[in-house]
Design a protein around this nucleic acid. Structure first.
Lengths: 196, 196
DNA sequence: TGCAGAAACGGAACAACGTTCCGTATCGTG
DNA sequence: CACGATACGGAACGTTGTTCCGTTTCTGCA
């Protein structure tokens, strides 16, 4: 299973050198354009920045979600892996959850428009949605159930709901000084506490 | 000041009967299309449903936000007016706040895509944004400060932040059984409580 | 090295949408 | 009833996403 399906990037790398090179170039270009123009920058812009045609971009990344996933995969994975570590080192499960959510919020807030497109139900974005959820929901669920087991929080909020909620709180947080997504996320996690 | 500027709909009604009639027809058409196709239905669809050209639609409602505001103004006003009433009748300010937020959430969740477009920072939507905020922030601020005065909640979350947060929580809530915006909003309001 | 087939490339072309513009039709008024 | 002002309709333009196909480039093999 390690070779036959490598989770997500299941397609084998092309045998042609130019194709591999173009894919790299496109990833770099996309990453650059994403930080300046946001994750819904025009496809043409990304292709132009990479010096390739739009057809080439679409062949490598059939949907925008594929491109976004490819660009941010590492960071999502890092966030996922931080979960167990926090659980091990934090004072209580709830503290671990709070810090993990902070990580997640930081990630989303610094990616122009990512949270919004994550929520978009436009066709083709389900892949993006699913990747984030597949990767992060189990981690969040572990943190939640640990906190529940410790009697710290209520047990009627699912990991998926919490993650979507936090993701939503981050929408539009990047360009708007009067709105503090981090604080709201913290308040939300606080609200999970058992009210005695 | 009562005549010269009537807050929002500052333009006097047209002297021409056909113009007034078309505006009404457009409002009805928009309301109908909004419930079936969401608030970002194509402008052409709305004009077609009303049996007028797109130019006519744009003359009456220069931006989509103007149209949305006109369609939902009554309901927004009703929500705003419910604030003081709840504060008077609820057991505590925090209870009033919770119920008022419920009202707000109910309103947003039942309008396909409204919460999303409310958050959109596309040009032209600032009017929509501003109308909601102008109308609701003062109400929310009153509820908040009453709860703060009663010592029920923390004092470091502004009305504007809370409203935006709750609005964000409602994004995408309409088509997705696994996500419960109402519950999350309740958890958020719960999180405002002073942690002793 | 040279060649044939496969693979990938580029960008023109199409569709959907928001928005503007102006020639035409309609209304209110003197 | 005629005239000016107002409003109408939809063609036309610009911007995007997406597809399609003639052309180019690469790779494996002789």
């Amino acid at each position: 299973m390690s070779e036959s399906e490598q989770r997500g990037t299941s397609a084998a790398p092309s045998r042609r050198k130019d194709a591999r090179r173009n894919k790299e170039t496109l990833l770099d270009a996309a990453a650059a354009v994403f930080v300046t123009s946001g994750v819904d920058a025009p496809v043409r812009d990304i292709a132009a920045r990479a010096g390739v045609g739009t057809g080439t971009l679409y062949r490598h990344f059939p949907t925008r979600a594929d491109l976004i996933i490819a660009v941010y995969r590492h960071q999502v994975d890092a966030c996922a892996e931080a979960g167990p570590a926090l659980l091990a080192e934090a004072a209580t499960p709830h503290a671990a959850l709070r810090r993990w959510i902070d990580l997640f919020v930081d990630f989303l807030v610094t990616k122009h428009g990512l949270a919004a497109v994550l929520r978009s139900d436009q066709s083709g974005f389900t892949a993006l949605h699913d990747y984030f959820l597949d990767r992060l929901v189990p981690v969040c669920a572990d943190l939640l159930s640990a906190a529940v087991a410790a009697g710290e929080i209520r047990d009627d909020v699912q990991a998926l709901t919490l993650l979507r909620g936090v993701g939503n709180l981050c929408i539009g947080a990047e360009n708007d000084p009067g709105y503090d997504a981090r604080r709201l996320a913290a308040v939300l996690v606080d609200g999970l506490r058992r009210t005695p």
